[in-house]
Amino acid sequence: MRPGRAPLGASPSAFDRARRTKGRIFAFTCAAAAFVGVASLGALLVDVIADGASRLDLAFLTGFASRFPERSGIRAALAGSVWLLVLTALISFPLSVAAAIHLEEYAPRNWVTRAIQTNIANLAGVPSIVYGILGLALFVRGLRLERSVLSGALTLSLLVMPVIIMSAQEAIRAVPSTIREAAYGLGATRWQVVRGQVLPMAMPGILTGTILALSRAVGETAPLIMVGAVGFLAFTPQSVMDPFTVLPLQIYSWISRPQEEFQPLAAAGIIVLLALLLTMNAFAIVLRNRARSGG
């Protein structure tokens, strides 16, 4: 043993005790921070289930909104949200993936590309109400699509596209360059490299990002009010040109009623909305795990 060194197992010095304490405090703080998210989700769930579970039944899911709270249901809003979700996915997914492929695989590294890239990053941070105003001016008025599901879906597509593009870019960038080289080395064209190797490897990541972006869109209210989603509707959309309402808007409309009997309806609506969101997120997690295991 070196002279001056305490033997292993000797009682710790003041310095050692202090740094161990610091370590424990740090670890505890981080754990507490991590717990905040879980705790608030738990509290939210307990609260809405306590308020709304009694109203959650088949009649609630299949009935239309009514001025009599006991007859009121969420059918129109649920159908509207699903319509909007599907349309938004159909519009935004192909456009976003194509844009991401262009930016990652084709675009030259010049100022035009950088400008587009910066723009997309900025658009991802634009408040959703601004997209609502744009949607109102461009789709509802400009293209005369009126207050339709289509207007809503186009507006939400603008909203989610920057997020999907960026997550798709990240997924594409995560494909190792060695895989691209291998494919090019076999005489693949750029299209064959993208189609045959890059996209299949990036797809789980792209889908995860898309689902997470769409689950945010499902919860959007403000831009849809701007493009004219209505709070009270006694039918479900039959075509993309029909008027519509969505879950958050229906929930808001119930909550803002003066009669107390509508409050449990709002809570039940929130349960439905959360169930929809959690299902989508679970789907995203499954996709991500499949990607990790090398599918």
Binding site: A182, A188, M201, G295
Partner: peptide, 19 residues
Amino acid sequence: PVEVRRHIGMVFQKPNPFP
């Protein structure tokens, strides 16, 4: 160049099989 690589193949430093 795509045509060139069909005549002149390449093996890389690290094994890089496709997944």
